[in-house]
Amino acid sequence: MTQNESSEPPEEKAHFTGEEGGGERTTPRKDLGAAVVIGILAITAMAFSLRLEVPTSIYTAPGLLPFLTGLSLLAMAIGLGVGAIRDGGSKDYFAAARAGAQNYLSQQEARRTLLLIAVLVFYIFLAGQISFNLRLPTPFFVFQFSSWEAISMPILAAILWFFWRAPIWKCGLFSILMIFFLAGIFRYAFHILLPAVG
């Protein structure tokens, strides 16, 4: 029963319509958890805004609006939390939350999402750390090849290979074409520097 509530059967998502919120089913427990996190965020924001200096009067203080925003966000978080508790969100909260999390992790889709996030974090971190730009003069123009392209190509190919499930040479070809196309627009048409080079 609790398991059903805190997870979404895959077929539910297939009927996703409209913008966020309309499709994803939430439960009072999720709302309660969200309310707690948002409440903490609001209190943190209020605490930090109180610490800002007040150069002139209180009405023009830099922290005034962030404080009021934090305060009203706290009120809204309480409203969300109270509503969630009224709908039974606090019943066996921790057991249900654990079950919900386990249920989430047991879905193949969720594991794939986490894997994808991990790959993206690795990709973006790597592209931010490594930096070189080769310039190979050809008779017609100076061909350039930067670290961003070198890193993006294999990673995009790998993502394609994993999700698209096409032969590896096809994934490689598509990724090379895409990255050269993109890099070409920014480098040769707009004359701007590519990521990582700086």
Partner: peptide, 19 residues
């Protein structure tokens, strides 16, 4: 002149001396 090494954390010193 050929390679622009910018950050020092991870330097990839690709050799293009042939060029």
């Amino acid at each position: 002149a050929l390679i622009m090494l910018t950050k020092t954390k991870l330097l990839i010193a690709a050799s293009v001396a042939a060029m």
